[in-house]
Write a protein that binds this DNA or RNA. Structure first.
Length: 480
DNA sequence: TAGCTTTGACCCGCC
DNA sequence: AGGCGGGTCAAAGCT
């Protein structure tokens, strides 16, 4: 099993202040797996720790998600005030598309929304980086709409920023981190470009071009024209960046440098060594940091046909979730053990009834049409399968209006409000099968309750011990 | 017998 | 208006 059992006592292996990476997260990173919000928050905290600059703010995914789902502007203001968004020059906001605050497994795609106040030429703007556009555009627009009233400028536009395309259904989170990394790399150099229109978008573009070049040199077989002939929108700019790169590095860190770090029963989490400290200590070991897209590419382990796909499939079976692919098109190369809709690699926790099959023009494989078997559920999906059992493409249409009939055994996403609340206190019974430390949950709940300024502490990688621990209350209730 | 897949026919939008 | 192609229907067959 990809995530193993017994996560109730999941070992915490890396920390950034209040942000803790668990052993199960390393498994996710090794995978090909959909990144959870803890991993994203951890990496952003890691980036933020290197840029002690009040102008640059990197928020954990829980904060923008909370802001997007608060019931009224007053609640939004209460949460957002401590963030001082109007005074920042650049704010990085991870966006998840989970439409259901009560559903921990609802999200399926990560993107990055950037509030940019740094460019005097363009003026304030929101820039959205989506590795599968326009999948998350509605969620990004929603977040931008919530934030606009908090900002002095009026009618701040939202534009789509340059973003490399993912080639599978699970690497969106890695792309978010890669773009965030590119922006943070550019940040210290911005003064050199202050008198021109060369902004951080150009820096991201440069990274992307380099990645394209490196990909072609490194692995010509990943040439889009040979890998994804049947889907032009993806085939045009495919990049085989994978979560394994970051994961391999983290795993190396945890094995080599955190061996002495044992699980802690309660906070303060400062007993854990910080990510930065680990890096500083790693001089004797050649474990360079992952700070750019090109590094991610260059360290990308070669994908083997069977192993990684099996792990990916196992993750799907474990989580009942096809990360990043609900309501969007994904392409993948996974082995299919059999043709049953329930047991195949296309198994996603829901029950499907096949109602048609056609040979479509432009695709060498037959396309099968499925409906969700739930009586009132409108969701359909199309699956193209190669003769040898590989899934060439899955397209989901609509949103399920019911819970999964086959509950996931091991949730991977912890973006939901329910999860945030469930993980608010270290002593709580975790509701996420052991992954009991959601990102920034203390900060979010405290901010909601009274404007605690601990988010700054979080941003700087500091302990959030000054935030009072409170008994867990349902954030969902708070939102009502 | 229920529930699922298969498969040819049909519908409908687009050019 | 007619052809084409994608999506859906529904009867028949299978498990």
């Amino acid at each position: 099993m990809a995530h193993g059992g017994g996560e109730e006592e999941e070992e915490r292996v890396l920390s950034h202040g209040d942000v803790v990476l668990l052993r199960c997260d390393l498994t996710i990173l090794r995978g090909p797996h959909f990144l959870n919000d803890r991993i994203i928050a951890f990496y952003l905290a890691h980036l933020a720790a290197d840029h002690h600059d009040d102008d640059l703010l990197l928020l954990p995914p829980s904060v923008p998600y909370l802001l997007s789902n608060l019931p009224d502007p007053a609640s939004v203001a209460a949460v957002a005030d401590p963030l001082r968004l109007a005074s920042r020059r650049l704010v990085l906001l991870p966006v998840n598309d989970n439409p259901d605050v009560s559903h921990a497994e609802g999200g399926s795609h990560w993107t990055l929304l950037v509030l940019d106040n740094s460019n005097a030429v363009s003026g304030p703007r929101f820039v959205h980086h989506d590795s599968l556009p326009p999948t998350n555009l509605p969620s990004a627009r929603r977040l931008a709409a919530v934030l606009r009233p908090l900002l002095p400028a009026s009618a701040i536009p939202l534009i789509e920023g340059p973003t490399p395309r993912q080639t599978n259904g699970y690497d969106c989170g890695v792309f978010v981190l890669a773009v965030a990394s590119a922006i943070c790399n550019w940040w210290p150099t911005r003064a050199r470009h202050s008198n021109s229109d060369s902004d951080w978008l150009e820096a991201v573009k440069r990274e992307i071009k380099l990645v394209h070049y490196l990909v072609m040199l490194d692995e010509p077989s990943h040439c889009p024209s040979t890998q994804l002939p049947s889907h032009p929108s993806i085939a045009s700019t495919s990049l085989p960046v994978t979560a394994q790169d970051f994961g391999t590095w983290c795993d190396m860190q945890s094995h080599k440098k955190v061996a002495a770090v044992k699980p802690v029963a309660s906070r303060p989490s400062s007993r854990l060594r910080s990510f930065s400290m680990l890096q500083e200590d790693s001089t004797a070991i050649d474990s360079p940091r992952v700070t750019s897209l090109e590094e991610i590419i260059l360290r990308r382990p070669k994908l083997e046909d069977s192993g990684t796909h099996t792990a990916y499939d196992q993750k799907k079976a474990d989580t009942g979730k096809g990360a990043c692919w609900d309501n969007l098109t994904v392409s993948q190369s996974v082995r299919k053990p059999n043709v049953s809709a329930k047991n195949s690699l296309s198994y996603d926790g829901y029950s499907w009834r096949k109602y048609g099959q056609k040979q479509v023009k432009g695709s060498e494989f037959p396309r099968s049409y499925y409906k969700c078997t739930h009586p009132t559920c409108p969701v359909k999906r199309k699956v193209e399968m190669t003769p040898d059992g590989r899934i060439a493409e899955i397209v989901y249409n609509g949103e399920h209006n019911h819970p999964k009939p086959h509950p996931p055994r091991k949730p991977t996403l912890s973006t939901s409000v329910e999860t945030l609340v469930a993980t608010n206190d270290a002593g709580l019974e975790n509701k996420l099968e052991g992954c009991d430390q959601a990102i920034g949950s203390d900060a979010v709940v405290e901010a909601l309750r009274g404007g605690c300024h601990c988010l700054d502490g979080f941003r700087n990688g500091n302990e959030i011990s000054d935030c009072k621990k409170r008994p867990t209350a349902s954030l969902e209730d708070t939102l009502r």
